[in-house]
């Protein structure tokens, strides 16, 4: 039963990490446009449109639309 000392904090940490990730995604405005996000995931265009490239968008936090009410 000593394993609990490791497992319980580990489980809580994992849960906590999930919560932090959620709060971060909320803060960075990823829930502002759920319809658009669904389409962006499957949009397959090849040209270098900055705002359509998920990698480019994530690389600089500035590309996410900031919360409107700031």
């Amino acid at each position: 039963m000593e394993i609990l000392v490791i497992l319980v904090p580990l489980a809580l940490m994992l849960g906590g990490a999930g919560l932090v990730a959620f709060l971060w995604s909320l803060r960075s405005g990823q829930y502002d446009d759920l319809d658009g996000a669904a389409w962006r995931a499957i949009s397959d265009d090849d040209d270098e449109t900055r705002s359509l490239q998920p990698g480019a968008a994530a690389s600089s936090a500035k590309d996410w639309p900031r919360p409107r009410a700031r």
Partner: peptide, 28 residues
Amino acid sequence: HCAGCMAKIERGLSAIPDVTLARVNLTD
């Protein structure tokens, strides 16, 4: 209404020089 419009608008506006961000919010 759709992904097509979204891509068209974003591409069309990004093509203007000195535009640093053009992002469509499809929900709103």
